[in-house]
Design a protein around this nucleic acid. Sequence first.
DNA 1: TATTGTTATACTCTATAACTATA
DNA 2: TATAGTTATAGAGTATAACAATA
Lengths: 153, 153
Amino acid sequence: MTTAPRIGSAFLLAQIGAHAASRFAERISELDLTPPQTGLLRAVAAEPGRSQQSLARHLGTPASRLVALVDGLAGRGLVERRRNPDDRRLHALHVTPAGKEMLDRIGGVAGEHEQDLLGALDPDERATLRELLSRVADDQGLTPGVHPGYRRL
Amino acid sequence: MTTAPRIGSAFLLAQIGAHAASRFAERISELDLTPPQTGLLRAVAAEPGRSQQSLARHLGTPASRLVALVDGLAGRGLVERRRNPDDRRLHALHVTPAGKEMLDRIGGVAGEHEQDLLGALDPDERATLRELLSRVADDQGLTPGVHPGYRRL
DNA sequence: TATTGTTATACTCTATAACTATA
DNA sequence: TATAGTTATAGAGTATAACAATA
C-alpha cells in the first residue's frame, strides 16, 4: 500500500493563502504597488498620525524597513511625514488626498480579487467561510488587518 | 467618517495561511527539516522513482534548487539517488527506510499543527471548512499537495 | 543616557546561466 | 545536438547593528 497523503485543512489554508497573496500581488502591481506598501498605506489610513516606531511595532517589522517603504509612498505623494513640534524626533504619518484616491482604487482591486478567488462558492457559503476564518484568526491571536511577514516584492 | 477597512475573506485566507505556514515551519524545525524539504520528501514518497527534472516541473521550482534540497535529504539518508541503467543521465529518487520513519514523525507533527490551528472549531465546522477550502483550491487550479512558492527557511 | 529615524553592512535565498556527462 | 544534473555567479531582499539628531 502507498502512503495516503491526506491533505489537512492546515495545508489547504497555507496553500490557498499563498496563492491568494500571490494573485493579489499581481493585481496591485498594476497600481505600481507592492503588498507591503499597500498594507502600510492602509495602516496609516486606519490610524493617522502614528510614528514610524509605533507602526513598526504594530506591523511586526523592523523600523529600518519602514523607512524604505515610507520613502516609496512619500516620494509618490501618497503619504507625508509631519514633524511633531513638541518632540522633533517624531515623524507623524498621514495619508494625502492622492493617497486616499489610491486607497479607493486598492479597494476596487481587492473586491475583484475577492470575487475571483471565491468564485466557486455561493453567497451563503462565502458567509460561512468568512465566519469560520474570522473565528480561527481570532483564536490564533492574529492582529486584524496585519499580514504576518511582510516579505516579497 | 473614517474609512471602514472591511477585511475580506481573501485577506483572511492570506493572513491565516501565512500564519499556518510559519507555525508549521517552527514545528518541523524540531525535526531539523525546512518546509521545502518536507514537501520534497512527501512528493518523492507519493511517486517514487521520478527524475529531478520531472519533480522540479511538478513542484514549480528550478531544477538547480532541487539539487541542494536533495543533497540535504540524501546526506542524512532520507532519500537516495539511483542511476537509471538504461539512461545514465537520470537520477531516480526514492525514500529510504529512515525517510519513511521521518515521514511518520512529520505526520505526527502535522496532526498536532492541525489540531492547534483549528482549535476554535468543532468537528462539524472543521468538516465544513475543509469542504469549502477544497472547492476553492480545486476551482483555482491548485495542484494537490504542492505549496506554491517554496520560499524561506 | 534614552529614543526616533536613518544609513551601512553582512547574510540568506533565489534564479539565470554556464558547465559536465550522457544520449 | 539535445537533455539530466550540477555548479557558479549575480541580484534582490532582509535583519542587525552602527550612526545622527533630539530629548
